[in-house]
Design a protein around this nucleic acid. Structure first.
Lengths: 215, 215
DNA sequence: ACCTGAACACCGTTCAAGT
DNA sequence: ACCTGAACACCGTTCAAGT
């Protein structure tokens, strides 16, 4: 016995069915950091929760579902604080900072990148949605689709980078690894953003040409 | 005791100690495609080879070592054929094609991206080395370090992309997934290469300014 | 040099049963 | 609504022993 939460007779209907789920996910993330993804077993996690492993299957369909929720939780960590989308927005710095936060969150815990590489639950109920971010990025002048593709590309790049950095832990910079990790990541990030800028310049040039031809 | 190389009595010194290793790795890759990474157990693989699982540990230190060699083998697949570095090289197309090949190789077999995300053995003995590729890319005008960072960034991006695409298989385009995969990948790829080009333009501009000021 | 038998210490998952 | 006991069908890895 552990967390009964609500009583059996009535009231407090378990709030959307996800109250203990959150604490299980949080405990799993804490445990992950201690034992790594190989050590994260349902039995170990259950022990950490003061429960038997079979009980976990009342809360989650299977281990995959749990891992996916862990992924969602880590992405929320990455998005939360500084989504400064005020009026004086410098879009390129805002965008770069978002990518950095994803990488840093992945690196912040053992095998974190491996977890974040998983699919996430449909919508993370987070304070800041993907759509909000699209709107913010559109202030740069990029089209709606370009914004979505941009965010997708940077998400993939950040996770790909963190994954490689983490899997080489201790294996000491293999064949083609250069830079401290940090600086290698920045190179790719800045180069990509340079590409976006030249795209914007080109679009402005074309728009200008149209305007002139209309005169 | 591990691999002494030559036999005690004499002849057929096992050719660098890697003859069966290659066929084990190849069999493992074939099996991976059939059963996926969750189904790829040492017992199943041993059965496929007509062997008992304990025997695998004579050839490989552990399962991780085997998986890493599988990663190396897949990268060789991705590099082999068209490293056309002839005189009429169009570096941007050459570079893009290399990135595409990594992604395609990863997508070519079940859970392939997951395997390629692992560290690879020090040097894959492949026909084409990382250093060869650096030299080829330097013909674009990029500096040595920029070439290394570029290739690293594209490798990470390609694997990150393939990983996401593959992990969403069947889970049907979650939250922020757009494009067919193919087109989403191309957007990031072209944008990054645009960034490299604007970098080159900028460097040429600076070099020109120096030259003029020397007159 | 290469392989096996047998064991050790684990896994994820299911399900009847408890409260 | 939530949890347990007990079982099923697996794992990766080690190691003495075989040939």
């Amino acid at each position: 016995m552990k967390r009964s939460g609500a009583a059996e007779t009535s009231d407090r209907p378990r709030e959307k069915g996800s109250l203990d789920r959150a604490v299980i996910v949080a405990t799993a993330l804490k445990l992950l950091d201690e034992v790594g993804s190989d050590g994260l077993s349902t039995r170990r996690l259950a022990a950490e929760l003061g429960i038997k492993s079979a009980s976990l299957y009342w809360h989650f369909k299977d281990k995959n579902e749990l891992l996916n929720e862990m992924s969602g939780a880590m992405f929320e960590e990455a998005l939360l604080p500084p989504n400064v989308s005020g009026p004086g927005l410098v879009w390129d710095e805002w965008l770069a900072e978002g990518a950095r936060r994803i990488r840093r969150t992945a690196l912040s815990r053992r095998d974190g990148a491996q977890v974040m590489a998983r699919p996430r639950p449909k919508f993370p109920q987070g304070r800041i949605s993907f759509e909000d971010n699209v709107k913010t990025l559109m202030r740069s002048g990029l089209a709606d689709m370009e914004c979505r593709l941009t965010m997708q590309a940077l998400r993939r790049y950040a996770i790909g980078a963190a994954l490689q950095e983490q899997s080489n832990k201790g294996a000491a910079a293999a064949a083609g690894i250069v830079g401290t990790g940090e600086e290698g990541f920045e190179f790719g990030l800045q180069t990509f953003i340079d590409g976006l800028k030249s795209r914007l310049v080109e679009q402005a040039r074309l728009a200008g040409a149209v305007k002139r031809s209309r005169k």
